[in-house]
Amino acid sequence: MIAIALMIAYACFGLGLLFCLWRIAFGPTLSDRILALDTMVINLIALLVLYGIWKGTAVYFEASMLIAMVGFVSTVAYCRFVLRGDIIE
């Protein structure tokens, strides 16, 4: 039963990743693309957590934690660059 639920959730988050890719490709403004990249990172973390349930190991939590941190820092760095033309003033 958990296996079927995991398959459904994989499909949902995979489709979500495709939607984000569409927004990155056709997004009219720069902020749209940053937002889509941020969403992509969140979807990826969800996929990693679900894969951890599938395999039954807790190894993937460290990986998803690292990806969460890198994703947040890169979003802030990108926005800061757009705002001020520089990341660290």
Partner: peptide, 13 residues
């Protein structure tokens, strides 16, 4: 798990 998948899909949609 299914609820999480549906919410993620709604957000990305």
């Amino acid at each position: 798990i299914v609820l999480g998948g549906v919410f993620g899909l709604v957000g990305s949609f």
